[in-house]
Design a protein around this nucleic acid. Structure first.
Lengths: 143, 143
DNA sequence: TCTAAGTCATTACCTTTGCTAACGAAACTG
DNA sequence: CAGTTTCGTTAGCAAAGGTAATGACTTAGA
């Protein structure tokens, strides 16, 4: 049974640390020139294949109108394309273009970026801790 | 020796997870009515004692003008006070008011908020993982 | 010593990126 | 086949960050 104040302290610490790291990460993405959410959206499409805007919004925990704007930006850059849904005329299927696949591959290849460098300076045990933490975060968010 | 692609994958995963959690946390702070950065700033002052705006900005990884705005808001709510620096006329010392100390204590006491609830549903081992991860995050950010 | 350059906080203005409300088209339901 | 629901979008707004410029003060150099 966890002490309530210990849990509250952890919540406090975690909130502060996660917030700072997220802010740092946001401003460390200069080389790709793509906002974090846009990159994450491409990542979702890469992992799951074509998805509808609604599904993407749910995945990234943003509201559908926000995803509409993300998709408009990505389509404008030629990174995704929208296609009519085969059975449901209301829905739309979004998929990656070849350019996006190249961008993702290139992004992964030359990811000598800030976070990777930092991570490689950690011990294997510390990296394992972070890997486990990321999984827990996803579970927390998924709720 | 860590495999480079494994490190890049971890970087990817961590970036996505941290971003989503930070976004969720930001929109989960309704009860205190204080933005995350404001709360974190009060926390820094609580931990370190009086600091200058520049030091606070560095701590929270935001630019000085942004911190000026945070401090203006906090001062407007009677949570911090500004005092002249004893030896350097350009600088300012910011410190917590009694009201802020009360707010922090109260905040800690009644933190039945989303994150605490979620955390208390985890196992002790998982909480330990998160505690360790938070520490590593701070080290990553501190550089 | 006194002028020039640098530093600190602030002000003014802009951008990014999320939100909610409202709407039109398409799909279900009874 | 009329009424309701769902999906994506549009429109408008708010939060929270950034950069550039300013003014007061300090430090360094001739």
């Amino acid at each position: 049974m966890p002490s309530p104040t210990a849990t509250a302290d952890l919540a406090n610490q975690l909130r502060a640390s996660v917030t700072r790291l997220a802010r740092r990460l946001r401003y460390e993405r200069a080389d790709t020139a793509l906002p974090l959410t846009h990159l994450a959206t491409l990542g979702s499409l890469d992992r799951h294949g074509p998805l509808t805007p609604g599904e993407l919004a749910h995945h990234e925990r943003i509201q559908p109108p926000s995803m509409t704007r993300v998709l408009a930006a990505l389509e404008g850059r030629g990174l995704v394309s929208r296609h009519p849904h085969p059975t449901d005329g209301r829905q739309v299927l979004v998929e990656l273009t070849d350019a996006a696949h190249e961008l993702l591959a290139e992004d992964r290849r030359r990811r000598e970026a800030w976070l990777s460098t930092r991570l490689s300076e950690l011990s294997a045990a510390e990296r394992a801790t972070l890997r486990a933490a990321a999984e827990i975060f996803d579970r927390l968010v998924r709720g």
